[in-house]
C-alpha cells in the first residue's frame, strides 16, 4: 500500500524520479541488504513454524496411536496411521450431534446478526427519529460490557424466562450484537445518500429502499459482518456454558470442553 501511495506524488515530479531513491539505497547497501534479507527470512520462518507447527502436530497426533503419540510428540508423520481416535469420536461420543447443533446455531445467529445489525445500523446512520442519539450511545456502552461478567446475569434471565436449556437460550440472547450494529452504522455513513434519496423521491417506502437499494450496495460490509458473525458464533463458548446443560444441546466448543474436562482430563492427571 505504501508503494502505491508513493507513486502519485512521484508522477507529479517527473518520470525518472521514483527510480532514483531506490537505486541509490541499493547501491549503498547491497551486502547489508543481503544480510537483512537473510535475517528477515530466518525470523519469519522461525515464527511461521511456531505459529503453524502446533496445528501440524495436532493433526498428526489425531492419526497416531496412543503409544506413538506419547513417544514421538514432535513428529509430523503418524506411524502407524490409526483412525481409532476418529472412530471413538464419531461412535463413542455425541460428536455428530454437536456438529449439527453448531451448524444450526451458527447459521441462525449469522443470518440474524447480519439482518438485524444492518437494519439497526442503517436506521442509526440515515433515518432521523427521536431517541436515535440515545440508542447509539447505548450501543456503544453495551460494546464496553465484557462478556465474562455477564455469565451469571445471563443465566438468571434465561432461568427466569423459563428458556434455560433450549435452542432458544443458545440462539436468542446473542442473535444481535452491538459491535455489528456499530460496524454497519459506520459503513452506511461512509456511502453517499443520493441513491436512496432518489429511490425515496420515486416513492419507495423506507423498508423497500433499504431492501432493494441500500443492501445491494452494502455488500462489502455485509460480507465482513457475515464472516465476523460466523466466526464469533462458531467459536462461542462461555454463553453455551450458562445457556444449556443437556449434552444433546451442546455445540462443538462446549462438547469439546466437556470431553477434555471429563475423560481426557482424567487421563491427563494420571500421566
Amino acid at each position: 500500500m505504501s508503494r502505491t501511495e508513493a507513486t502519485p506524488g512521484a508522477h507529479r515530479q517527473g518520470r525518472d524520479e521514483p527510480e532514483a531513491p531506490r537505486r541509490r539505497s541499493k547501491r549503498r547497501s547491497r551486502p547489508r541488504g543481503l544480510v537483512n534479507t537473510f535475517v528477515g527470512y530466518s525470523i519469519l520462518i522461525f515464527f511461521a513454524l511456531v505459529f503453524l507447527y502446533p496445528f501440524v502436530i495436532q493433526l498428526a497426533n489425531s492419526l497416531k496411536s496412543e503409544p506413538d503419540a506419547a513417544a514421538n510428540p514432535l513428529s509430523p508423520i503418524p506411524h502407524p496411521v490409526s483412525f481409532a481416535g476418529f472412530e471413538r469420536i464419531f461412535e463413542g461420543t455425541n460428536f455428530p450431534l454437536w456438529l449439527v447443533n453448531s451448524l444450526l446455531v451458527t447459521t441462525v445467529i449469522t443470518v440474524g446478526r447480519v439482518f438485524f445489525d444492518s437494519l439497526a445500523g442503517y436506521a442509526l446512520a440515515r433515518l432521523r427519529f427521536r431517541g436515535r442519539q440515545a440508542i447509539f450511545a447505548g450501543v456503544i456502552a453495551v460494546m464496553a460490557v465484557p462478556g465474562v461478567v455477564l455469565l451469571i446475569p445471563k443465566f438468571l434471565v434465561l432461568n427466569q424466562f423459563g428458556i434455560y436449556d433450549s435452542y432458544t437460550a443458545l440462539i436468542l440472547p446473542i442473535i444481535v450484537d452491538a459491535a455489528g450494529v456499530f460496524i454497519m452504522k459506520q459503513f452506511f455513513e461512509s456511502v453517499p445518500a443520493s441513491m436512496e434519496e432518489a429511490a425515496r423521491i420515486d416513492g419507495a417506502s423506507v423498508f423497500r429502499t433499504y431492501w432493494s437499494v441500500v443492501l445491494p450496495m452494502a455488500r462489502p460490509a455485509l460480507i465482513t459482518l457475515t464472516i465476523l458473525s460466523f466466526q464469533g458464533s462458531w467459536n462461542e463458548f462461555p454463553h453455551t456454558l450458562v445457556a444449556v446443560q443437556d449434552p444433546d444441546l451442546f455445540t462443538l466448543p462446549r462438547g469439546l470442553a466437556d470431553l477434555v474436562s471429563g475423560s481426557l482430563g482424567a487421563a491427563r492427571s494420571t500421566h
Binding site: 437494519l119 439497526a120 431517541g131 450501543v139 460490557v145 445471563k154 434471565v157 423506507v206 433499504y210
Partner: peptide
C-alpha cells in the same frame, strides 16, 4: 422524503433494542 422515518427508524432498531434490553440490561439489573 422523510415521511414515516420516525416510525421506520424505531421499527428498524426495535429488534436490537429489545434483545439487548432483555438479555443484557435486564440481566445486569437482576
Amino acid at each position: 422524503v422523510r415521511g414515516g422515518e420516525a416510525v421506520a427508524g424505531w421499527l428498524f432498531v426495535a429488534p436490537v433494542v429489545v434483545i439487548l434490553g432483555l438479555f443484557l440490561l435486564l440481566p445486569i439489573l437482576m
